[in-house]
Simulated assay, not measured.
Amino acid sequence: MTTISLRPVADRPREKLLRQGSVTLTDAELLAAFISSGQGGKCAYTMACALLQRFGSLRGVTEAGETDFTQVAGMGAVRYVQFQAAREIFRRQLAEPLKKDSVFHRADDVTAYLRASLRHCPQERFGVLLLDSQHQLIEFKILFTGTVNSAAVYPREVVREVIRANAAALILVHNHPSGIADPSDADVTLTREIRSAMALIDVDVLDHIIVGDTLCVSLAQRGLM
Rank of each mutant, 00 (worst) to 15 (best):
M1W: 08
M1R: 11
T2R: 08
L6E: 15
L6M: 07
P8N: 08
V9R: 15
A10H: 14
R12A: 04
E15L: 10
Q20G: 02
Q20A: 14
G21F: 03
G21R: 02
S22W: 10
V23G: 07
L25R: 08
A28C: 13
A32H: 06
A33H: 03
A33P: 02
A33N: 05
F34Y: 12
S36A: 09
S37A: 10
G40I: 03
K42T: 03
L52W: 10
F55H: 12
G56F: 09
S57M: 11
R59A: 09
T67S: 14
T67N: 11
T70R: 08
T70V: 06
T70F: 06
T70G: 05
V72F: 07
V72E: 09
G76N: 14
A85I: 06
I89D: 10
Q93V: 03
L94V: 04
A95T: 12
L98I: 08
K99D: 00
V103L: 14
R106W: 01
R106L: 13
A107P: 00
D109S: 14
D109M: 04
T111I: 08
T111L: 00
T111S: 15
Y113K: 06
S117T: 15
L118Q: 04
H120T: 06
E124S: 11
E124K: 06
E124V: 14
R125W: 00
L131I: 12
D132F: 00
S133H: 09
S133R: 10
H135M: 11
L137W: 04
I138A: 02
E139T: 15
E139S: 15
K141A: 14
F144C: 13
F144W: 09
T145M: 07
G146L: 02
V148F: 01
S150T: 09
A151T: 14
V153H: 12
Y154L: 05
P155Y: 05
E157L: 08
E157D: 13
E157W: 00
V159A: 05
V162I: 15
V162Q: 11
V162Y: 07
N166D: 13
N166I: 00
A167H: 08
A168I: 00
L172T: 01
V173A: 13
H174S: 12
H174E: 02
N175V: 08
P177Q: 02
S178P: 00
I180P: 00
P183A: 10
D185M: 00
D187K: 09
V188T: 08
V188I: 15
T191W: 05
T191V: 01
T191D: 10
R192V: 05
E193F: 07
I194A: 04
S196A: 13
A199M: 11
L200N: 09
I201C: 06
L206I: 09
D207V: 08
I210C: 07
V211Y: 04
R222L: 15
R222P: 05
G223M: 01
M225Y: 02
